[in-house]
């Protein structure tokens, strides 16, 4: 299709997939911040997501994956074109006003991708060696948490339709165990920092690419994007930090 062949068409793909992903980033953060509450909250949340009707979980997952793929495809094809457009660079290099974030989108994007893959293997697929939290959850100091726990709220155990106790995946303790490894936490914090940078340019840029920005709103959107980036960074970074400083404790 000619639209996708054009440079502007690719920018639309970039912007629209970016829009979906940045909304997801916020939603995912809000969901995960439940770790600061009663273990019931996040465990029930995890259970609900896992048991959405009509296979919606996979619909959403595949949609997000498609967005990621589209985002990366557009980024790479545009980058190649951009590189070709300036075969010879200046000897004296100068930047007048472009932000560091805007100039490093491809770098931050690639690192975020690597982080994303690790993150999925770590907590979703749970296939990182030493971190297969399917039968037992083992923390850095050797503490072992059960992988599955009954869902308990205010001392009352939730039951299913047959009256049996509802057994769910122990998301809460998995996060605590996962972030008990300093290197993983560090990688995570760096990952979300780059994500914050990426968003601080990307969110405002998205409006520009779709033509939904003007001089007046540019400065506002730039600020909103900056706030958006920092909110997500602080939100995400608070989880490993909360665990590190003992604000969040294991349920078992």
């Amino acid at each position: 299709m000619s639209l996708l062949a054009s440079s502007l068409g690719k920018k639309y793909v970039m912007a629209l997939s970016g829009l979906v992903l940045s909304i997801f980033v916020l939603g995912h953060m809000v969901g995960n911040l439940q770790v600061f509450g009663d273990p019931y909250l996040i465990n029930a949340y995890g259970y609900k997501l896992q048991h959405l009707p009509y296979g919606l979980l996979w619909v959403v997952r595949l949609f997000l994956l498609a967005c990621v793929v589209a985002h990366i495809w557009a980024a790479i094809t545009l980058k190649i074109q951009n590189k070709k457009a300036r075969p010879q660079d200046y000897e004296a290099k100068a930047t007048v006003q472009a932000s560091l974030a805007s100039r490093t989108m491809i770098m931050s994007g690639l690192i975020i991708l690597a982080f994303l893959i690790f993150h999925l293997l770590h907590y979703t697929v749970r296939a990182v060696p030493g971190h297969q939290y399917n039968h037992a959850i083992i923390a850095n100091d050797g503490t072992e948490y059960p992988a599955e726990v009954p869902l308990v709220l205010h001392g009352k155990t939730k039951v299913d339709a047959y009256g049996d106790p509802l057994i769910v995946h122990n998301v809460h303790d998995m996060m605590i165990a996962g972030f008990s490894y300093p290197l993983i936490s560090l990688f995570y914090i760096i990952g979300v920092y780059l994500l914050c940078m990426h968003l601080s340019h990307g969110v405002s840029s998205m409006f520009q690419s779709l033509g939904l920005r003007n001089e007046k709103w540019r400065y506002r959107l730039d600020k909103i994007a900056m706030v958006y980036g920092w909110v997500t960074f602080l939100g995400y970074a608070s989880i490993p930090l909360g665990i590190w400083f003992g604000i969040v404790n294991a349920s078992v």
Binding site: L78, Q81, N82, S102, H201, S205
Partner: peptide
């Protein structure tokens, strides 16, 4: 020509 990445330069 390359594409716009909204640098604003």
């Amino acid at each position: 020509f390359g594409n716009c990445t909204n640098y604003g330069e």
